[in-house]
Each structure stands twice: as C-alpha cells, then as structure tokens.
Design a binder for these strands. Sequence first.
DNA 1: CGATCTGTTGACTGTTATCAACTCCGGTGG
DNA 2: CCACCGGAGTTGATAACAGTCAACAGATCG
Lengths: 260, 260
Amino acid sequence: MQTGFSFSKLADHLASLGDVTVEDLDLLAEMPSTIAHFSSHQTILRHGDDSHQCCLLLQGYLSWRNAEGRDGQITSISVPGDIADPQTLYRPRVHGNLIALGPAVVALVPHRFFHELSARSPAMSRTLLLMLLSDHAIQRNWMINLGSRDALTRVAHLLCEITTRLQNVGLAKDFRLASPFTQSDLAAACSISPVHANRTIQELRRCNLLQWHGKTLTISDWQGLVRLAGFDPAYLGIRPRDQGARPTQLGPAKCVVAPA
Amino acid sequence: MQTGFSFSKLADHLASLGDVTVEDLDLLAEMPSTIAHFSSHQTILRHGDDSHQCCLLLQGYLSWRNAEGRDGQITSISVPGDIADPQTLYRPRVHGNLIALGPAVVALVPHRFFHELSARSPAMSRTLLLMLLSDHAIQRNWMINLGSRDALTRVAHLLCEITTRLQNVGLAKDFRLASPFTQSDLAAACSISPVHANRTIQELRRCNLLQWHGKTLTISDWQGLVRLAGFDPAYLGIRPRDQGARPTQLGPAKCVVAPA
DNA sequence: CGATCTGTTGACTGTTATCAACTCCGGTGG
DNA sequence: CCACCGGAGTTGATAACAGTCAACAGATCG
C-alpha cells in the first residue's frame, strides 16, 4: 500500500464521503504538487498568511493551533488523506496556525487544480463540499467533547476518532497507530493540562485499554474504549471501507521539489 | 426597519460576507417560503430527520443542541438573518436538534431555491459558501471559548459575539438586545452549570458591564466587556456595516401559511 | 390562586490546574 | 566514551474553579 508518496489516501477519503466514480478519482492523477517535509512542531501556515495552495497531508499528523510552537489549544487534527486547509480554497486568509504534530509529509496543491476539478466534475465538486461539511461535523463533536466530557472520556473519545479516521484511509490496522506526538500535544487537543493528560493516559493503560510505547500506540480493547468514550462514528459522515469507488491506478505523485 | 417579516436581514448578512451586487440580492425577492412560529424550547428539527428546506431565522434565536428540550449542550446559536441549517443543502440528514431559544419566527425555504440561486448567480453561490465558512470559523472560536477561558470570560465572549452578529443585521442598536433565553440556556452554551452561570452574570453586573432586566439585556460597558473577553471580531469574517450592497427594495415575504 | 419555571443563595464536594521535583531518554559535543 | 543537556514523562502536594445539592424567593401563567 506504501507506493512511495501517492494520493491514494485522498482518493480513499473522498470515496468514503460521497458517490464518486472511478473516472472522477482518476482525475486526481493529474494533480500537480510540491512535496514538503516538516519536522515536529514546525509551523506550516502562520496566522494571517494568505495561501494559494492546499496542504494535502500524505504522512503524519497536522494540527491547527491557537498559537505557534507547542503552546496554544489544538482546534483540529488532520490525518493522511485530509486536506488540512480547505477553507483557503475560498478565503485565502489563514486563521490560526497550522503546525506539524511530529514529522509530516505534505503535498502542496495549487488552489487552481481543485477549482478546475470542481468545474470538470460535479461529483467531485460536491464531494469536496462534503469534505468541508465533514470537517464541520468533526469540529462540532470536538465542542461536545470539550463541553460535556471529563478528562478520561475526552481523551478516549479523541483516540477513537483518530483511529477511525486513520482506518478510513487504510492506516491503524490492528488498532496500532503511529504516535509521534507528545502527551502535551494530546493535552492541548483535549484542553487539559499536560500533567493531567499524563495521569489520564496512565488510567487508560491501567484499564488495559491501550498501550503507548515509544512512537506507537496500540489500542488493546477497542470495544472498551468505544464504550468508555460513548463513541458513535456516525457524525464523521464516512461509510465503511471498500464500498466506494477506487481509482484504477494511482502512481507516485509528480514530485517537483522536496524542500526541508 | 420592521417591515413585517422580510428577508432584509438575510440580505444584510450575505452582503457583509462577500461581494454581492444589488442584482444578486434582488434575486432573494423571489424566495418562496413558509413562515413558521415556534415557542421557547420547541424542537424544530430532530436528530435523524431528513430536511429538504432551510430554516431562515427572521426573529429570535435558534440553538443546535445535543439533546431535546432544555437539556444538552448548545453547539451553535443562530441570530436573525442566519440560515440555521445550511448543511442540509448538501446532506439532508440532520445531526443534532434545532431548538428555539425563546419565541422565534422562521422562514422555511425549499432547498431547490438555493440550488437554483447558486446556479443563476456565481456570486451568490460563493457567498453561500462563505456563510458556511463563517459558521465554521464561529464554531472554531467556540471551541477556543470552551477550551481556554474560564466561566467569566467565556460568558463575556459569547455575549460579545452575539452582540456583534446582531449588529451586523441591524439589531442590538445601542447595545440593547433581546434576551428571551434563560440563564440555563446561556449556561448550556458555555458548558457551565446553571448555578455557576447565575453567579457569573452577577459578577458581570457587579462590574457594571451589563444589565439584564426581564427580556432585555443591555451592555453598559462594551469596551470593558471586549477587554475582559479578549474579543476580536475578525474571525467572524464580516465587514463593518453599510459597505456592502443592499437590495433595491425587499417587500414582505410571500407568506404561504403560518403554522403554530 | 396554585403550579411551575426561573433566578438566587449557601454549604459542600470534586475534578483539574499549578507548582515543584525528579527520572529517563536521545542527542550532542568535548 | 563520557558528560552534559533539553525534552518528555512521572509523581506528590496544594490550591482554585466549578459542580452538585438543597432551599427559598419571585415571576409568570393557566
């Protein structure tokens, strides 16, 4: 599945959202892009910037944060196959800071490509819109997470969501997922203090719900975690895998240049 | 300004978001609608419903809630001129419960109208999209409100936002706004307990920032409230009033029927 | 004029933040 | 190879903010 850097995860993501045909997904093969690598906690987009390209995440995690660096609340997390900044397609001015959570690989795609794609394929246009709505639904759910759950269930719910979204693009097989982020990052996403995040994770470990060794997080009791979090994936607006269309073949991306 | 039930507030709202011409706004005059009145805490859309019309709020406030009735966290508040459920334009299945905050008057507009409007006017199509993005930005800001402010500044920030959005459609003149909602509603929007909301409001009163008598809330020290809340209206994506286009003339809505 | 909802107050409890210290680890440079 | 360093994880003590419970006052409405 790991054919270098490819757009297959974006294709998976789009296919899970709406009814797109194989022909639609094949249009993605023409996507022009610049591949960029970022190191942990590096700023990708700064508050107030104007952006004329989209950040398509290929590997790792990205976060939208209130402030730069390690500080500031995380308001959103992107997983591979996500377009981290779809809003800039319609309003280039960036609100908030887009920051890598651990090392990340991003494909920078000119807005023009998506606008032309929308013009050529009504189905793709609609699916991109559904992507925006899905983001919206995820945000609303984060609000509920912050507003009505305590630290333990909050962390549990976030992990359920991330895992489900990863699985939607073929990652987190066997409930084993990369965790290049720190406990403080997790705390920033759940709006709890790093110290309390640590205690919370210990509690989850003690309940034999998960293991977190090094840069790998293993969920040992998925059903238990789902029950604890009260997690219902319906809000994500995605369908079970392998029902949607898949592109006939997607080669490696046309890598124009690879800046640090 | 109160020419019966008109769509002028929607026009104001749209004009504040993007560059729409007077001709674009005139298209709204053809909007077919059914006027509906709702009483406080009445459910307008139930979780799981399929909706094929949009709820354009004419008077009062609407809330999206986690649960029906008075319970459940509020994830979003609509003010007059808002389309409460723009998501249903693209995904009819409703997530959450749309519930009136105090008595409310709503124009029910078939989805078809907005789809045809989008097809006829690219500017309107774009502006409707900007409306969606504005909702998104407001949500993100609520997350920050819940995650990084204490009860006092949380309530203050919410009141600043509501006031600004009301002023954007010509309401809340002189910082005097209708408050048909209860303290418990406010608590549900800030994710604090009703008791604590009460104490918080008393604190705001004690600081001479606002008065809340009966169903009218008066902000007596706007600058002070803004300072306390750390409120910056930039995220709303709206421009100062009276710069955008205005429709030539908008008569009363074609009122088809007025159910209770 | 009673019933119900809303607002108000006090006492108590509990979750979580904060502060501080310490360990462990990976990297870096001497 | 070792000493050092910074970041990350861990632990305990304390404090603050907010939730809960309970009771009552005032308003509103049938």
